[in-house]
Structures are given as C-alpha cells and as structure tokens.
Design a protein around this nucleic acid. Sequence first.
DNA 1: GAGCACTGC
Length: 698
Amino acid sequence: MATHTSKFWKPGSEPPGSTLSEERVSSEGQGSSVVYNPYRNLSLEQQRLKLPVFQHRTNILYLVESYQTVIVVGETGSGKSTQIPQYLLEAGWAAEGYMIAVTQPRRVAAVTVATRVSEERGRMLGQEVGYTIRFDDVSDPEATRVKFMTDGMLVREMMQDPLLSKYSVVMLDEVHERTIHTDIILGLLKKIQKKRKDLRLIVASATMDAEEFKDFFNTNETGDSRNDTAAVLSVEGRMFPVDVHYSLDPVPNYVKATVETAIKIHHNEKPGDILAFLTGMEEVEQVVSLLIEEARKIPRDSQKMMVLPMHGSLPASEQMKVFQRTPNNVRKIVVATNIAEASITISGIVYVIDSGFVKLPAFNPKTGIESLVIVPVSQASAEQRAGRAGRVRSGKAYRLYTEEAFHTLAPSTVPEIQRAGMASVVLQLKALGIDNVVRFNFLSPPPAQNMVRGVELLYALGALDDNGRLTNPLGYRMAEFPLHPLYAKMLLISGEMDCSEEAVIIAAMMQIQNVFITPPKQKIQATNAKRRFSALEGDHLTMLNVYLAFVQHNKRPKWCHENFLNYKGLCRASDIKDQMTRLLKKFKIPLVSCEGDAEKLRRCLTAGFFANAAKLHYSGEYRTVRDDHPLSVHPTSVLYTETRPQWVIFNEIVQTNKDYMRDLTAIQPEWLYELAPHYYQYGTDRELAAKRARLGDR
DNA sequence: GAGCACTGC
C-alpha cells in the first residue's frame, strides 16, 4: 500500500517539498511518460513469479479448496486479476468440462486482462482463455476454460442458466466499485451457494471493506470460526509512496485553488505530470482556459506546460491526446472529471490535485426523477485519486480540503444500486426467478421506495400482473432486452403498430450519447448541420433522420465528419439495432416499415413512454400529466423553439437549475387514454390526486 | 433562450 504522510499546506502559498520524497524522486530518475517496470527484461514466466500475489499462491488455493467464498483484498499492481485465474486453472478447477468465470465492470478491462493472460499462457486468445462482452464473444464453448467477461454479461448468462452450472469458480473483480451488476451478482451468488456447495466464489476488492463481504457470505452461525464458510486474504500491491498534503484552511473556491496549485507545482516541483480531479465538463474547461492563460506567461527558456482537458463528452481524438508522451522540457497537466479515477489510466502522473468533490447520480422516488448532484468524495475515492500519483514513482497528492474535513468524509461511496431507478433491476430479478424483490438479499439494500416505484412502473407497462408476477409473454420478453423497460415495451408493441423497422432505429439511437459534435470553433456550422436533420415532430424522428442518412451515405466516416456527427457512436447504434432486430425476430414480431407515416411512430413511442407525458402549462413551461411536476424543454432538443407542442412525451429528465426533459416528441392527448387506459383512467386532476393519495404517492 | 459524472446489457 502507498504510504501516506500528512502535511499541512495552504493553496496560494508554496507547496512544501518533502526531503524524503525528493530523494526518492531523484534516485528513481525515470522519464515522466515511462511506466516503470523493473522486470521488463524478464520473460513472461519470470515476470509472473515476481508479482506480489505469487507469494500467496499456495494459500489462495488452500483457501479456495476450504472455503466457499474467498475475499481477496489486493492493491494495484498485486497481479491478482491476471494470476489468480491461472492458479485456479493450474490447480485443476477447470477440469471435467468446468469453466472459471472472471468478471470486470468495464469492457476494456475484460479484453485487456484476457489478452494478457492468454499471452502469458502462450495460447491464442479465444481458446483456453477467452472473453465475452456485448457485441464481441471471443471464446469457444468447447475449448475455453477461463472466461473473462463484463459483470453485465454474467447477469445475462444467469437468466439462461440460473445455477451457473458451467462454472466451478466465479471471480468477481473490482468489487469495490459496486456497480449495479456486481451487486445483483453478489445477491444471486449468495442464493446459488445454498444449492451448489461445490461452487466457489472469489471476491476481489481494492479497499479494506473485506469484513463486510465476509459477513455477507459467511453462513456460519455457530460462533466457532473453524466453521466459517468465508475467508479473507490480503495481498500487498506494488505502488510507490504518495505524500498527501492537505490544505491548511478550507478552500472557498476549488476551481481557483486547482489553478493556483497546478501553477505552484509547476514552478516549484521536479518534473512529472499533473492530474487534477474536478466534477464536470464546465469546471474542466474553466480550469484549462485559466491554466493556458498562465502558460503564456512562462518565460521562453523555462519548462513549458501542456494543458489538456479530459472528460466523457470529449471526442475520441481529443481524448487520445492525454495519452501522448510529452518532450522532456514540457510538463503535462491533465484536468479531468472522475473518468480518470478508475476508467482510464494516464501514465507519467506524479502529482494529483483533488478538489474533493464529485458529480454523482441520485434518484428521487417521490418524483421518479434521476439527477446529478455535486457531493464531497468519500475517503475511499480520495485514496483512489491520490493513488494515481504513485504508479510511476513516488508522488504527491494535494487535497484541496483540510485533514479534519477528510476525516468527516464517508468511508466509501454510496453504492450505485442505492442511487438509481429500480425498474430495470426489478425486471431482471423477476426474470431470474426472484419473486419477492423487496426482500432480496442485497449487500446494500436499495431504499424500499425506489423498489416500489420500479414495481409500479413495470405494472403500468404490463410487465407485471396484479400479483407482481412477470407477465407471459410481455414481461419475460421485456426482460430479455438489454434496454430500459420503456424502450423494451415500445419495441415489443412496434410490430402491431406497423413501424418496427423505424422503432428499432430510434431505440438504438437513443442509447448513444453525443450524436451531434460541436467543435468550439465551428459552432455555427455544427448548428446548421444539425438543423438539416431536424424533424418537426421532435428528437426521436430527428435521430431517425440522422441514422437513415448515415446508411444512405454508406456509413462513411468522412460524411459523418462533414456533418458533425459522431461516427463511432453511429456504428455502435448500428450494432445495437442489429441486436434488437435479432430479438424481435426471435419473438416473431413482424419487421414492418411505417413508410414515412410519422403518426404511427409517435403513437408507438407513446405506447412505451406514456408514463413520461407532459402538457404545456399557461406559464410557458410544461407539467407532467401524472403529478403536475413542472418541467422545461432541454436546450439541446429540436423542440426548443418558440412554438411549443401542447403535449409531449420524453425519455428522461436532467436536473440542473431546472428540471429539463431530454429527447421529446409531440403527441396527441387522446393517445394516452387510448394506449394506456389503466394509467390514465382518471381524467381530471382531482381524480388523479385522489388516486395518488390512495397509492400513498405523495 | 442554455447545458451534458461514469459505466454496462
């Protein structure tokens, strides 16, 4: 583990240098963009033996043999992700036709770890070692013994094979990230373990919350630890020490403090790149422009600064820039959102600036609205950020808050499953045979209200019957779609509404972000380009126009570029469209075109999204039909115009200063009563209020 | 007239 020594320091003053760390820096003497690997000249086999986890090989195999669940706490660089699966393989856990599954929260991780492991074994990827991610299955049902996959893929597999009968061991990696999928798998595996005593589970986490996992999986109630069914093992990492510096006083403005701190580091500290964590794109751009202003003041013969933004809505080409090496006399300063905390790794970082804040989604069960809120980071998250400075050599982390403030932070971030809408989760659990979802054994149970809200929505969509059971065939089919239930409903009804070909495209297009690219220097051209695709009916038909034009121009990257469209995103939409089409064929839903009849499509959208309906209020804003909640049109919508339709349906609400509806289509009010009579059976506001009161929904 | 943490099936 990286050692942390706390020091006091005040932003705006000179950051203190540590004699100890200065010595370490000079003794390492590494180039700033080189990942330090002291074993790079050894063979792959020799490198394997040098990893910290190797010392624990025998013990790990013993524990897996003796306990149903083994929790492995291992820091970055321990080698647990690549080695433990191989130890299991070598010890015979994949004999007799059994397989070993290893899950990762992200697609790239599943692919890179699988690639590394197959290299180490000297075999071709997709044979003994393979991976399975959505749209890319590089595994062989006969030959593959170790399969790396995304956690979401394992949930899908469990719908087909609830006891995971193919596997002898399931290893869940990066469990500390607590994705919704990982949490679902944890609950399901606890259940499976009762029926399959032979199945082994390895829970790998980077943080010290091992006891919580152990208590969850330990079924021993005798009080005698010799009967435990779960065990914990810690594996040391291979990281360099990071000195942590706290702010002496609370920082009134972390955006300004980030700029000041970066400048001070640049002028006073040894070479090494800087990574700063902020909460959103706007803050990132602000800091970048302030730093570029400062960079201009640097004298010609001094070390230069290269300031780069890093956030999710940056085009791929811009994102690539942060990975490029910089010349010796240039210091790279990457200003990033949380994307750099776990999703991407930038080499050469020696200094980290932590604003202490993060933007996270929250769910309000009263309104059913998901929003993004800026909140203080957790201690675990702050440690993760600081750790980003210790991958190349010893580094320094500057926290823009006091040490006292750090100790008041929550130990770990609230798991995603407690902060999200539950409609999809409830649908998936029901499909997995969990009848009583409210009493499902979650490691961290979501608020009951969130679950109730999810159940209500599924009932309204016709996926659940009066007894809360999955309906046949609608509910079962909806669960098979890798989409939010609202889209699944729309697609499943699109056949009988004579527009399934177009509905599939719309559903696919709605899954990708940033379809339209707006380069800051060509704002006007980009806006004009977007206007060419705009449909009067709303955003859904606009997206349909974009996709149809993309196909008409043979999916050419050059055409996308000229029209300010996200080429990679459109390719992804094409993959999703194909997958959805396959599912519709499987359910024998006819593939028919509406032949340009927009009304058919708008009705079909209403059949899926009737719960998200709003009416224009005399104030000029909209109100939800169901509970009179005020809403505005999002500025990115094509319906963000002077003349607004009286009635609309929308995909989602984003909450900033106001509650904005995103992705809208104009509808006729009578369609609501026609297509969702059960939901809108009470016509007047007063009757609606009465119904709400009875449901205890206020 | 004004805004988009990050994944994943």
